[in-house]
Design a protein around this nucleic acid. Structure first.
Lengths: 209, 209
DNA sequence: GTCTATATCCAGATAGAC
DNA sequence: GTCTATCTGGATATAGAC
């Protein structure tokens, strides 16, 4: 579309164009298979601009990472402020994660797949970041007030959110071919209720055999 | 140790030295932050040998990936041949995954963290591979014969193994600081029984303990 | 088959005009 | 601040002796 070349209809800020282009490329090809030239081309800016704004490819990835981590933190904090039970909060987080996977797929993919330590060598793993700690806190509060079974926090948190995260991976990898929100109700029922049919004697025989 | 230079005490085959060195480097720094020279140096072979045997860095990674995927498949097949209930098979897989994470950490890390599509562009995602399909089959058999609650296979499989995989990630990232096998009993109890305190808790307690 | 030395290529980074 | 043209380093890959 050469007729738009010099005056864009929507004069999106330059930083934003760069980050959007980078996100798309990083997700599709992986950080190391994207060159600064690729980003420059896709964002319709010059190489110089990228170095001026972000200091290089790594700087772009870093800005992207912190920006998205921040958005995730806000999402979690919104859920906290919702005045739900803690189980309700967990469910709302699961619901939102499923929704985001469909509507803002690239963001979820970047945060989930990207091996941030490859381009942020000094950075701690994502799961030490605030929003992930908060998720563990929610579970802990739920245990403390009796909503959730008592037990090791790592185990409970992993059991609550592990299935969700697994399904997101399977969806992003193309194995699950229906939108995730369709699975929401059945998933949370399965998470909280357990997997074994409630027929005591039957269960005993089958499990212990 | 220059006195060992020309005759190794343990004349480990050359391919194996290359693969072992590559595994270690890939896991520590990531595929793209490792050069063929790094592998060559660490394995004490020449660059030429690496190109002769594997055709380059990508070839090394490919060989490694298929080799380890194959080992995983054998592990799953061993479990299948064990004549356990299907729930028992799931538990055994969880147990083995936890054990491997401690004793063969690099292998687990490579299979779990490595973004294989970055260096195997034409390859399908790992979770389409045979051993992962078999895990879904085990769950399906368990549902068919009444051991496991009826429901969507993606949800059930993700619920059964999602917590396990999540905990392995947390362990590899250094957040969990105890060996995973210590969590095994409590984890499988949590997986199968669910997370919400039951009113007729007599039943489940008896069954599971 | 294994090695060393070398060629080729391309990504990251910069210089300097505008 | 933005751009183009250029430099440089380092990685992949190969050539050719042994």
């Amino acid at each position: 579309m050469p007729y738009l070349k010099d005056k864009e209809l929507v004069p999106e800020p330059l930083d934003c164009r760069i980050l959007t282009a980078a996100l798309n490329l990083f997700v599709r090809r992986g950080f190391h298979n994207v060159s600064v030239h690729d980003i420059q081309r896709k964002a319709n800016v010059s190489i110089g601009s990228i170095y001026n704004h972000f200091g290089g490819k790594e700087g772009v990835a870093r800005a992207l990472y912190y920006h998205l981590l921040n958005e995730f933190e806000e999402m979690i904090d919104d859920v906290i402020s919702m005045e739900l039970t803690n189980v309700g909060r967990c469910n709302e987080i699961i619901r939102l994660l499923f929704e985001y996977t469909e509507s803002r797929r690239e963001i979820v993919e970047f945060m989930l797949h990207a091996k941030h330590r490859e381009f942020l060598p000094e950075e701690k793993p994502a799961c030490t970041a605030a929003p992930f700690r908060t998720m563990r806190d929610i579970v802990e509060w739920g245990v403390d007030n009796g909503e959730i079974c008592r037990g090791d926090n790592w185990i409970i948190t992993s059991s609550v959110f592990g299935g969700t995260i697994r399904m997101i991976h399977l969806r992003l990898d193309g194995l699950i071919d229906r939108p995730l929100p369709e699975f929401y109700n059945e998933l949370i029922e399965t998470v909280w209720r357990g997997l074994i049919p409630e027929q005591p004697s039957e269960v005993l025989r089958v499990v212990r055999e």
